[in-house]
Simulated scan of single mutants.
Amino acid sequence: MTAAEPSLIVKICGLRTAETMEAALAAGADMIGLVSFAPSPRHVDAAAAAVLADQARGRAEIVLLTVDADDQTLAAVVEAIRPDWLQLHGRETPARVTEVRRRFGRPVMKALGIRDAADLAAAADYAVADRLLFDAKPPKDATRPGGNGLAFDWRLLAKLDPRLRFMLSGGLDPDTVAEAVRIARPLGVDVSSGVERAPGDKDPALIAAFVRAARAAQTLGALA
């Protein structure tokens, strides 16, 4: 990594406890994610998320993940948690992304589910988002749109417009992140299930290992 080369952004998502939050912060995560979506095993209510957000404030950027939330719901959680970013992980349209950015005055990261090249066609329409997050498209019977531990073919991203600001998620863990970075060349990486013992149960040792592996991927020239 050269002085002119931007640092790879590392995001640990779905944190639920003070212990694992501290593990992510101590490891040097750039962003932490709090999930406000009841069907997810990583869901935290607004009161608990506010405490976790305060633990992270000033040490990492705070990302609040919601799924197809209406304005009333968003207003309540934004007021309680005071996130730096909003991550929209549902079926929000480009118009909805634009409206959320305007109404809540936060940068928006929009997740897009990817299975094949056709799914990338929507990326240009979502350029209204401040950042895109490419995640594996969930199975048809999935109860949540992300955090399923699945990967997609990262080679699909090779022909994307290099000006497109995107992060990568889906199937990442300490053993796969270096290869993902080498192939996809993302702005950053986002992990949740890949640093867990069980759904929703983060492992501090895996968090530290993931951050080390992501940093090493860039240091060793994976982005060169």
Rank of each mutant, 00 (worst) to 15 (best):
D153A: 08
R115W: 02
E22C: 08
A50P: 08
A222D: 03
A129P: 04
A69P: 04
L64S: 05
K202D: 01
N148Y: 07
L133N: 03
N148P: 08
A47H: 15
F104P: 01
T176S: 14
R103W: 05
A48T: 15
A222T: 04
R59G: 04
T66K: 08
H43W: 06
L223G: 06
V177H: 00
M109T: 11
D54P: 06
A123D: 01
R131C: 14
L168H: 00
L65R: 03
A117V: 11
A3I: 12
D116C: 08
A213C: 10
K202A: 01
K11Y: 05
H43V: 11
V189A: 04
L120Y: 04
T143V: 14
A178D: 06
A18F: 09
L220H: 15
R163W: 09
K159Y: 03
L52Y: 03
A222F: 03
P145L: 01
I12C: 05
A209R: 15
A47S: 14
R215S: 04
F166Y: 11
A118R: 13
M31E: 10
Q218E: 14
A117Y: 03
N148H: 12
R155E: 07
G221S: 11
D130G: 14
V67L: 07
E179C: 05
P204H: 11
A180Q: 01
E92V: 06
L160G: 03
L132P: 02
R212Y: 05
I32E: 01
G188S: 13
T176I: 05
A127F: 12
L157Q: 00
R165E: 09
G113H: 00
T143H: 07
T73Y: 12
P107S: 05
L150A: 07
S40F: 01
P83V: 08
V78T: 10
D130K: 14
A123W: 05
T66Q: 09
V67H: 00
A76F: 09
T20L: 03
C13H: 06
I62Y: 00
D84A: 11
F134I: 11
P145V: 03
W85C: 12
V97T: 07
V108M: 02
D45G: 13
A27R: 08
A222E: 02
R106D: 00
A214H: 00
V191C: 07
L52W: 02
V211R: 01
L220N: 15
S193M: 05
M31H: 15
A198K: 13
G170P: 05
G188P: 08
D125Q: 14
G149S: 10
P39D: 10
P138I: 00
G200H: 10
A56D: 01
D71E: 15
R103Y: 04
L164N: 02
G105Y: 06
L15I: 13
E19P: 12
T20S: 04
